[in-house]
Design a protein around this nucleic acid. Structure first.
Lengths: 198, 198, 198, 198
DNA sequence: TATGAATGAGATTTCATTCAT
DNA sequence: CATGAATGAAATCTCATTCAT
């Protein structure tokens, strides 16, 4: 119990520092100080900086996915459900800015191959999660038959970019507008109705 | 002339290494070796690693934007024009994998604030470039009136994610399918026509 | 009794690990695991790594000396006695490879001066033990009058090197040949009889 | 030229420190200070501490072997030649105390396997060198037919132990006595002539 | 008596940057 | 203009030791 407490303390600090400075500029010393443990304790609990990073991302994304699942257990009409999903993802993405910043920024090849694989695994799970929702929608006849994997990534890509931008410029577009824009694109596209004759 | 030649040689090498390994794992030694110049020459031409990085990204994105502009100077009907735009961006993104990998991966806060600003500037230009196209489309009545900046970012986000994935798994979905999916989403959305009554 | 049992368990594990990896690469964690006790228990029984090391070596060499003494309590003719001694040392040295490896390898200055002194003390005792045997042999007229201390060290040096080599390459020369070679050198030297006129 | 100078400077300092403190207690900082170069320069010239250690030992033993070869290019009668050899080895061993201390103390398994192999290689060369001399002596009928490899190691073992002891206690037996003892053992053995009837 | 999570000093190593040539 | 040997600050990680339980 005590041990898990320390681990959480460390993950919290790591999450804060990694999201603020990125993987490479985050220093283990710094994380230790913020977590109020000795540097050795970091290594006692996570065998390397990379592993700590992986654990941070994994824990964060899992939390988000769990929350999304909880919020979506509803019986709304599909369109409302879709809007709910988008709204939910965007809001969680923004409120868990720590994780999402990391997630958006550090998919680079800069980290141990070993660990990168681990992180990509979690990202894959997240995309799969979206993909499953889209698939269900299609099976029920609510969605067009498109390659699920690609549409799922498209959704994630849109959300990623718009939310990352919002986190960078919080004073920019309000969250509601972001959600609306994504919802509109996903439901009817960008194109005006009369254009299809052009 | 000789001088510009060396600079290009360096930028070429830097582009290759940065895209392959990311900013932090790219070593100046390595770049020097690949560029076939001495390490000192790197510093003679670019005052720091960060500046070299910024120059690499800037040059790359500018090349891409120039090419897009060239390819789009046509008088096709709008829908064809839109599809052309998407197709063009996707193909360039993939063929300039060196730049786009960097672009997708290193927007993080891991680099000098100074330089990060510089890079984000170029990215902003790119988004602005898309935004202008969307704006024109709207003014001509082809596109729905949405917040341009947000839709532009949504477009870029989709392209980013799908192309990055394609570069990671070239054997996955074919480029044509990627283009189609993006085009379909942007033109009509994901939702099946009959769903709007649900 | 229970206590002594634990101590022995620890000394056994320590002996195995130290001989396998040497003082510095042996980790206390490792020894604890092999001894099936908690790390704290190591420190409860031996105040430091160095002390544990010293205890390991001391116990080992004492065991060997005791065995040699037991095996040599005989009334054979001197030459047989000498051969017996050599044979006995070599065989024990090889069968107690754990101790002898340590003994041969870690006489370096790398360990606490304090502890090094302690270990050298045991080694001195061992050499003294050989020296006493040689002295007796001389007094009885069996051996040439040579500086005992030096000849004792010469004997130990030969045995050390040849046995260490045998432990490294068990498939090399058979033990019998090693014993014979040492015995021949010690009894008649390397030089052929007719060479003394040369 | 400048570069080789720095390398020599480093090897000199490394030799001094390693022989004084052993591999593990020697700190790279210390060596850098003594060599009057920056720590980075150590790593610029030798890729790791282990490699520096290996280079130090190799260079030292090679110097010794070269000197022995030079000193032995004579046409003395065999017995004089043998005594010359022993005398030469002992004196060089003692005068190059830096190398020989390292050589005697750090054959342990404490260092990278990789590097240990390298060092053992040089030691093997040294033993081979002695072996060749013994072999020639036997072929010319001066020496008894014994397993060369074993006798060579026996010689080296004796020298090792006696010289190491002399370096530890310089006030003990004088060098001449050490040489005489080894020579006597090698030429006629320890055993008194009349013992063979016992 | 025994435990093992926590510690933190200190070691090796890296690499962007400089500057004499 | 170009070079590359030299630098040294700073980062990650190790592990003997401690101490509350």
């Amino acid at each position: 119990m005590k041990k898990e407490f320390k681990k959480d303390q460390i993950l919290g600090a790591a999450s804060a520092i990694f999201s603020q400075k990125g993987f490479h500029q985050a220093k283990m010393d710094e994380i230790a100080v913020l977590a109020k443990v000795a540097k050795g304790t970091l290594y006692y609990n996570f065998s390397s900086k990379s592993k700590l990073f992986a654990a941070t991302v994994t824990q964060g994304l899992n939390k988000i996915m769990t929350q999304i699942k909880e919020e979506l257990e509803s019986d709304l009409p599909f369109m409302a459900h879709l809007k709910g999903l988008i709204s939910c993802i965007v809001r969680l993405y923004i409120s868990h800015s720590e994780v999402s910043r990391i997630y958006a920024n550090e998919m680079s090849s800069s980290i141990d191959d070993q660990v990168l694989v681990e992180i990509k695994e979690v990202r894959k799970e997240f995309i799969q999660f979206i993909e499953d929702i889209l698939k269900t929608g299609e099976e029920k006849g609510y969605l067009k038959p498109l390659p699920h994997h690609l549409s799922a990534m498209a959704v994630v890509g849109m959300v990623d970019t718009l939310c990352a931008n919002h986190l960078d410029h919080p004073a920019g577009s309000p969250v509601e507008q972001i959600i609306d824009t994504i919802f509109t694109i996903l439901s009817t596209g960008l194109v005006a109705d009369n254009s299809f004759n052009a």
